[in-house]
Computed example of a mutant assay.
Amino acid sequence: MRSKNGSNKDADTLLDGIGPAFSRLRRHAPTGRKDFSRNLILNVVADGTAEMTVGAVAEELKVDPSVASRMVSDCIEQGLLLRAASQTDGRRTVLEITPEGQALRDEFARQQREAFERITADWEQTERLQFARLLLKYTEASTAYRKREATS
């Protein structure tokens, strides 16, 4: 049976489940809430293509600047980030990951890989690798889409 937009009803049901599935993944991260927030901040700063400011972190995470400021301040207090003068505009303050922050980021990545391997332990290896490739492809396409939207 075809739906009103001409697609397969089973495909629509499958695709409609993606949003709630992403939400469940986020809620069941393999780290505690504080670690989850720190991991988000560290990844945003590390993945930034330009100098990262608190405002850029807020924009990337789609949160209020005061929320981003508290999250960044926590990372600074923990020695994971530091504030530095911008190399292009000395009046601006940018964020940099410390060696401790990079070590924690690496530890988060290790924990996430272990969780993925435990969760998918009964999958065929080809399924695990295919899912990993497609997830990475999806995140790269999502990043490219957001960049295109921001410039249009």
Rank of each mutant, 00 (worst) to 15 (best):
Q112F: 10
L136V: 10
G90Q: 05
A103C: 02
A132L: 13
W123E: 03
R91S: 14
T120I: 04
E124W: 02
K137M: 14
A132T: 13
V94Y: 00
A84W: 00
L136G: 14
S86T: 02
L95Q: 08
L95W: 03
T88K: 08
S86C: 03
G101P: 01
I119D: 06
F116K: 09
A85P: 05
S86M: 02
G90W: 01
L82V: 15
L135S: 13
I97S: 04
Q87F: 01
R110S: 13
Q125A: 13
Q102G: 07
P99G: 06
F108K: 06
I97C: 05
D106Q: 12
T126E: 11
E117Y: 06
L135I: 13
P99W: 04
T88F: 05
Q130I: 12
D106I: 13
G90N: 04
R128P: 00
A103S: 09
L104D: 08
R83G: 13
G101K: 02
L134G: 06
E117F: 06
R91E: 10
E100T: 09
Q130E: 12
T93P: 02
A84V: 08
R83L: 10
R118I: 14
R113M: 15
R118C: 07
Q112N: 10
I97R: 03
L129Q: 07
D106K: 09
E127W: 04
F131W: 05
R133A: 15
E124F: 04
Q112Y: 11
T98Y: 00
W123D: 03
Q87W: 01
G90T: 12
L95V: 14
T93V: 15
K137W: 02
I119L: 13
R128T: 10
A103Y: 01
R128G: 06
F116V: 14
T88C: 06
R92H: 02
A109M: 11
E127I: 14
D122K: 15
R110C: 06
D89L: 06
F131C: 11
R105E: 08
E107I: 05
R128E: 05
R113D: 08
R110W: 04
F116C: 08
D106R: 09
G90F: 01
R110T: 14
A103T: 11
G101Q: 02
T120K: 01
L135K: 00
R128A: 12
Q102L: 14
E100W: 00
L134C: 09
R118P: 01
Q111A: 11
L129P: 01
A103G: 06
R110M: 09
Q102T: 14
F131H: 04
K137P: 00
Q111H: 02
D122C: 08
I97Q: 01
R110A: 14
R113L: 15
E117R: 10
L129G: 05
E117H: 07
R105Y: 05
Q102V: 07
F116L: 14
L129A: 07
L82W: 00
R92G: 03
Q87E: 11
G101Y: 01
K137I: 06
E124M: 12
A132M: 10
R110I: 09
L135Y: 03
D89A: 11
R91C: 07
E96V: 15
L81N: 02
A84Y: 00
F131G: 08
A132I: 11
A84D: 03
R83D: 08
K137R: 10
L135E: 04
